[in-house]
């Protein structure tokens, strides 16, 4: 990704953040989200150019080569040269796309040198977070305000619920500027954990462990949802990550560690 393209993309990107009429994904706040966005825009622009060329030729032809305009049909119907050209050129374009795509993929799959590890477990229909080194453990489910509003015939105006369907009782707190390794599994069926602004998603599979890494560069609250059909309340088990500076994170850990310690005294 050269500097010029990054400059152009970041100048155009703000155009796409018109509140409810969101047409694009966010550039995100972590290296992996940024990389996914940049690749997405690159491929998108290439397909736009191809579309303009191909549809341009089509529309030209539709206008000029009409019987009603007096056009007489030509008789050519094959050309090996042309077939070779329009096989090779697309192939070359694809190779051009594959190189940055492969580099990005390798970067995303490298979970080494993480500072903290969090195990995320999907349940029907909530998440459990276990901070492995820091000994914090809790469930996180859809907040009551949303849960009441979403019932069929609730008569509650969902537009008045704060972060409707994207709020939880216990938020996942993570430190900023720290490489965090997320281990994913599930208790019952396949779920998937996704917070778009911080990274791409991965499946949470019962009996198996998956992993991804995040490094959140900006403090804030980031919201996501389960993204693998997991039963009736698949749409009602969101994820909320609160990213805070390291000191605040350490304080939060010590406040919440007590719960875990109580658990272990059996």
């Amino acid at each position: 990704m050269n500097r010029l393209s990054i400059l152009i993309i970041s100048m155009l990107a703000p155009l796409t953040t018109l509140a409810d009429w969101e047409v694009n994904m966010s550039r995100g706040v972590s290296p992996t989200a940024n990389a996914a966005y940049d690749l997405h825009m690159l491929i998108f622009y290439i397909t736009v150019v191809i579309g303009i060329v191909v549809f341009g030729v089509m529309f030209y032809s539709i206008y000029h080569h009409r019987k009603s305009k007096g056009a007489k049909p030509a008789s050519f119907h094959e050309s090996t040269t042309v077939e070779v050209i329009w096989t090779v050129i697309p192939f070359v374009i694809l190779v051009g796309m594959a190189i940055p795509a492969t580099k990005t993929l390798i970067m995303m799959e490298d979970t080494r040198n993480s500072e903290i590890t969090v195990k995320v477990t999907g349940y029907q229909w909530m998440w459990k977070y276990d901070y492995v080194e820091d000994d914090v453990s809790f469930f996180s489910k859809l907040a009551d305000s949303s849960n009441e509003a979403r019932q069929l015939g609730s008569k509650i105006d969902v537009n008045k619920v704060d972060n409707y369907l994207l709020n939880v009782d216990n938020e996942m707190v993570l430190p900023t500027n720290t490489k965090v390794r997320i281990l994913l599994t599930a208790s019952d069926v396949i779920h998937a954990w996704w917070v778009p602004e911080i990274t791409g998603k991965k499946d949470a599979i019962p009996g198996y462990i998956n992993e991804l890494w995040v490094d959140i560069k900006e403090p804030g609250v980031y919201r996501g949802q389960c993204t693998e059909l997991c039963g009736k309340d698949h749409g009602f088990m969101p994820i909320v990550v609160r990213a805070v500076p390291k000191q605040e994170y350490t304080k939060w850990v010590s406040l919440n560690q007590k719960n875990r310690v109580a658990d272990k005294s059996k």
């Binding site: 030729v57 032809s61 539709i62 080569h65 009409r66 019987k67 009603s68 056009a71 030509a74 119907h77």
Partner: peptide, 10 residues
């Protein structure tokens, strides 16, 4: 598209 090209379309 090449089939359409220089055809006589309706």
């Amino acid at each position: 598209v090449a089939t359409m090209w220089k055809g006589s379309m309706t």
